[in-house]
């Protein structure tokens, strides 16, 4: 096994402690995870929902009963029935199929923007906390400036400036979340700056950049992952809000925000199902990520539990 070979050249001082099995940490975390889930059934429920969302995102287009883009004007604006579970919209498209198929795009936007801000904010924050000085001041200034805007308004401005595309929605959502990530990463890196293992690594002749990437970064990863799942819900809401006002995604693409926007005109004449079901899907997804974030925090970071 790779792990064992790696543990071999450990310094003599360390030899007193029994060599750690490489998977022991993971196994303990899984055990703790199972404990948290059995202790808090809500987290288990959220995890079940999450699996359902992932399945819909991956296999949605192959599972749905109707073509999400096929219009059938004869069957337009029909309420939910056995044939069309969530009814049909103004063009006779099946709302259920569209809601399921849209999962992939919404999920992709959220994941992409969170991954992007994880890279940008995480790295900038870690560098700021570890190096201090000018790096810290510059990153802090950027974060403060972003925070001086109402976040959704800034996202609108960014999409307006960069161009009205899905890609720019991802970028805008990432930028407005930047301060959150940078601050968490900065605080965590700052605490570990002079920690024993960092000094040991420094004395063993590692370069500062190597210490940062190989020693500090892996240590704050769990906390960053919790931060990711906590902001995932906000990322989905932000992206759906942008597409609700008509940015990014264009019709006839199936996406929850734009589907609610398309159905909003029919709310006043009583055809509630067109906007209701995509809106409810959006709400459930955000709810699921918020619960999951709380649950993950209990697993990775039990001290912060409230």
């Amino acid at each position: 096994m790779r792990g064992k070979a790696k543990a071999m050249p450990a310094p003599a001082v360390m030899a007193e402690t029994p060599p750690r099995r490489p998977l022991a940490g993971l196994a303990a975390m899984l055990r703790h995870g199972r404990y948290v889930i059995s202790e808090n059934p809500v987290t288990g429920f959220a995890f079940g929902l999450f699996v359902l969302i992932v399945i819909a995102a991956l296999f949605g287009p192959y599972l749905v009963p109707h073509d999400p883009l096929a219009s059938d004007t004869a069957a337009a604006l029909k309420p939910p029935s056995l044939k069309h579970w969530f009814g049909t919209d103004q063009l006779g498209r099946d709302v259920f199929s569209r809601v399921v198929v849209a999962t992939r795009l919404d999920f992709f936007i959220a994941i992409a923007s969170v991954a992007l801000v994880f890279l940008m904010g995480g790295l900038a924050g870690v560098a700021a906390g570890f190096f201090g000085g000018w790096t810290d001041r510059i990153v802090g200034r950027i974060a403060d400036t972003i925070m001086a805007f109402p976040l959704f308004v800034l996202a609108m401005g960014i999409v307006a400036a960069l161009g009205n595309t899905v890609q720019n929605i991802v970028i805008a959502t990432a930028i407005v979340n930047f301060p959150l990530y940078a601050r968490v990463a900065r605080a965590e890196a700052n605490v570990r700056r002079e920690a024993g293992f960092v000094q040991a690594a420094r004395l063993s002749g590692n370069s500062e950049v190597r210490i940062l990437l190989a020693h500090i970064l892996p240590n704050i990863l769990p906390i960053m992952i919790v931060q990711m799942s906590l902001t995932m819900g906000y990322a989905i809401l932000n992206a759906a809000g942008l597409s609700f006002i008509g940015l990014g995604v264009r019709p006839p693409t199936a996406e929850w925000g734009i589907m609610v926007a398309e159905g909003s005109a029919f709310m006043v004449s009583g055809e509630w199902w067109i906007a209701f079901f995509p809106g409810a899907a959006l709400m459930i997804a955000v709810f699921c990520f918020n619960l999951l974030g709380d649950g993950l925090r209990d697993i990775f970071d039990p001290q912060r539990r409230t």
């Binding site: 819900g233 809000g241 925000g257 709310m267 006043v268 209701f276 809106g279 709400m283």
Partner: peptide, 29 residues
């Protein structure tokens, strides 16, 4: 918990449906 999960435009539309269309208490939006 529910408040942070509700998309604000969705809440608005539900309120319109209930209070304007169903109950008729509110004027047209």
């Amino acid at each position: 918990t529910a408040g942070v999960s509700l998309p604000v435009f969705f809440t608005g539309l539900i309120l319109v449906y209930v209070f304007y269309y169903l109950l008729g208490w509110a004027p047209a939006p």
